[in-house]
Amino acid sequence: MKPGRFDLVLAGSCGEAVSLLGGREEAKPVAGSQSLGPMLNLRLARPAVLVDLSTCAELRGVTEEADSVLYGAALTHAEFEDGGLVDATPGWLPQIARRIAYRAVRNRGTVGGSLAHADPAADWVVTLRALGASVLLAGPEGERELALDAFFTGALATALKPGEIIRAVRVPRRGASARWGYWKFCRKLGEFAKASAAVLADPGRGEFAVVAGAIERAPVALPEAQALIEGRADPRVVVEEALPFLPPERRALQATATARAIAALSEGENE
């Protein structure tokens, strides 16, 4: 199928993108078009205007800050995968990126696009949430920063207002003592995850997180993260209480994902 008609305009800068979007519902920002493209081709999404951000230089930089690293929203998954970017973590970002869909998709898909699309099964959505990342948004009313827990409002839903775009993603730095685990269950390599869990243990900063993903809702940070990580809480019990909306069989899978992500953490291995 071919998409319905739309105009595609290229934005040269963040400011230009915001003014091209003009706060209109029918105008949509797009970068790699790897999630939006299929929906356009299927005529399910029918925007009148696409504002393409993929060549916008100011969305493609990396800025090192004392306590974090700022990644331009139009950096591609492959650019993370290939390790050419400064890594705020001890080598975790390339591992996450490598498992997103397929290489040809990773060559075009962007981190900002993935977060803005907010597919609950997406890798960045659950992992960056666990890593305590935030997004810098640019819009008609200026800039603002939102932590990802406030940014994701549901499946495919975010706090982005019409005309607003993600400019950059701020990822806190993690030191050598920090540990990380991520486990996802896919029926087929590269396909949408059926369950996923990301775990962060950063005793240096006193931060612990266990995030449930691919639950067809916004990712949920499980309570008792530290107890889960330290083996003092049962993932089955915590998942049962925290995710009551999941059907029972799906809940069992989520408990397995949680336990396995935690196991990956202690072994220092990620699938």
């Binding site: 299929p38 029926r187 087929k188 390599l189 590269g190 396909e191 949408f192």
Partner: peptide, 10 residues
Amino acid sequence: ADYMLPGAAE
């Protein structure tokens, strides 16, 4: 993405 054909990894 819904109708799954086996790939090389499967």
